[in-house]
Design a protein around this nucleic acid. Sequence first.
DNA 1: GATGAATGAGCCTTCATTCAT
DNA 2: GATGAATGAAGGCTCATTCAT
Lengths: 210, 210, 210, 210
Amino acid sequence: MNTITRTEQKQLTRQKLIEATFEVIAAEGFSGVTMAKVAQCADLSRGIGNFHFQTKEQLLLETLHALYREFENAWRSAIANAGPAPIDQLTDLIKRILEPPIADPKKVAVWMAYWGETPSRKTYMELCEMHDREWEAAVEKILRSMVSVDFNPHGMKLHAIAESLIAMMDGFWLEYLLAPDRFKPQDAIKACFAFLSSFFPDFQQSDKDI
Amino acid sequence: MNTITRTEQKQLTRQKLIEATFEVIAAEGFSGVTMAKVAQCADLSRGIGNFHFQTKEQLLLETLHALYREFENAWRSAIANAGPAPIDQLTDLIKRILEPPIADPKKVAVWMAYWGETPSRKTYMELCEMHDREWEAAVEKILRSMVSVDFNPHGMKLHAIAESLIAMMDGFWLEYLLAPDRFKPQDAIKACFAFLSSFFPDFQQSDKDI
Amino acid sequence: MNTITRTEQKQLTRQKLIEATFEVIAAEGFSGVTMAKVAQCADLSRGIGNFHFQTKEQLLLETLHALYREFENAWRSAIANAGPAPIDQLTDLIKRILEPPIADPKKVAVWMAYWGETPSRKTYMELCEMHDREWEAAVEKILRSMVSVDFNPHGMKLHAIAESLIAMMDGFWLEYLLAPDRFKPQDAIKACFAFLSSFFPDFQQSDKDI
Amino acid sequence: MNTITRTEQKQLTRQKLIEATFEVIAAEGFSGVTMAKVAQCADLSRGIGNFHFQTKEQLLLETLHALYREFENAWRSAIANAGPAPIDQLTDLIKRILEPPIADPKKVAVWMAYWGETPSRKTYMELCEMHDREWEAAVEKILRSMVSVDFNPHGMKLHAIAESLIAMMDGFWLEYLLAPDRFKPQDAIKACFAFLSSFFPDFQQSDKDI
DNA sequence: GATGAATGAGCCTTCATTCAT
DNA sequence: GATGAATGAAGGCTCATTCAT
């Protein structure tokens, strides 16, 4: 019991530091992150960050891990809770990705901050690729269950359609970030449906549901 | 004559520094930029960056300016050279944005690097918004010339469609960055056309042209 | 009985810490000593060093004490066990100092580490002077018993001869440290005898004994 | 001319930093060395040390280099200036090593500080071995020129005698450091001569000269 | 105009020390 | 007594910026 409390406390502190890192990135950008600021934001002392994560880089990496984990949980649960119909799964997935709390200004800002550093950091790149693969596979799997084998409208393979849908959602996040006042989740969702409707006629009808 | 040479020399050095900044960002990310690296990359002396741009921030800002200027030139010339038909203008615009040299791994990496810092820097935000406004207006203008006034398919206004198209193209850039091997300009262009075809029937046919 | 066990336990832990300090100095030099490394080397917990010795400085000082104590025991027992003849005492003393386990690479390294810090630390200096005085007095006492009062060969007083012998032995330790492969205890001992033989003819003969 | 001045200035600053490092080691020991203290001692700004030597370790290493260089110059010039007679060369050599400015409390303290760290630092060890090899060879060469080939008194080879003489001088330095008030250069020199006199009868006479 | 040595603020990191458990 | 998480001071190092040459 004594031991458990200590271990729990440690986990709690780590969690606080990761959340503080998130907040600092959101507020000051990637280049504005300082171990001191993180500690202060977490209401802890100077050395604690290095104590728990050894290096700043490690702390940043674990924060990115946490971000991906949350994102993955979101889409997995959206699919799991949407019922068996693929069209419902896809609909719910899109909504989940493009509405709060996933599409949230702070969160998107942090995503962007990491992505901006990704091409020049191997560790980020690898993490990113790993998660993207799973994410893309999940989307493609739903699409595949909606059509016959030799489906190829607009000369695009299913794979490319999935990629494009993902690109579109990422693009809306970016828009959310760079022009938050012009961005409306409803329109973003509609646009995704419109895109899909040119491949899958069923989506024509679902437009009203939004 | 002597004076002219001096002024030209000055401009040349400034240009070299901006290009070097671009290269360093592409190679090492935004957080990897130092005045020393930029100077070295430009094959110039240490203090030269501050000499010409006063501060690092100023150099970074002017580099972003140059980036936007190039981008704007690209889409303006695409529209200008496409002929009078809106559909041709839009087609060429999309191709211009999603093909080299505009959609280039290095260039996109630099865009991302700036965007990652944008939400936390007012100057970047303002610059970004200003350019985006013009860019969005140009796209919307073309779309508007293609349809009647009360156009409202999928419950989306023309404005939102333009935004969505832009978001889509930005999303493909992002994809280009994070998964360069899976990204194919052809598919990205097709996807944009597919998206537009669900609003503008004319695009159905243009699919073959790509 | 319980109390005794506790006290013993405490002594044991202190001893382990001192030994660990010794090991860490030998392995990483004086500047490489940290409380954490010492604790880890002793297979104990982080805070234990300060718990038993209050400060790092105190732990280092007590380790030096232990080192001197061991050294003193060595030469005292060498003298005590050598029989009554001064020449035998001196012979055994020299051998004891210049052969393992006293002349041991690790041990000498630790001596050097402390000596390197000695001139800038009053506490070490005092400890060092105190022990050296006794050590020098013991050597001088043996020498004195070997000669008549007005002994003054080479213009050197007995006192200076004792000092020189000690310096010589210290010098061999140093050599052991800086050129361990070239150092041979046998030669070092012979050299000491050669030095003494130029003051005390008796040593001429003892050369063969080594 | 302009360039020369700049280069000279740079060399001067480097020199000042090395001397300051020397002073700080002498005053506060190896573990008391701080880049800030060195800079302050040299009357320069904080970052200058790293600017010229990259790392603290590098600065310490170059300081050791300078120390060895000075030492080597001392014994080489002593030999060169002593005339052709080996006994004169050896005599002058010993005097040079055991008298100021070479045998100087500060300088010896710095030597000791480095030696204390030597066993745990490969770079120091290598530097040390390299110089020692030359130093020992020079001493041995003089000794060799004083005797016939099959010289082997006290069962010691010439090589071992040279080593022993060096060990003796090192030991006196150590004594100088740990018991400066008891150390007298005159006695140290006499002791060396006494040691040598037991191998080389010629040294018997030279005792008076000191 | 250009250079690069010098400055000094600020950051990451280490580490002795404390103290709640 | 022992543990190890937490603290906070201090050090090495980087880097934007300045300025004498």
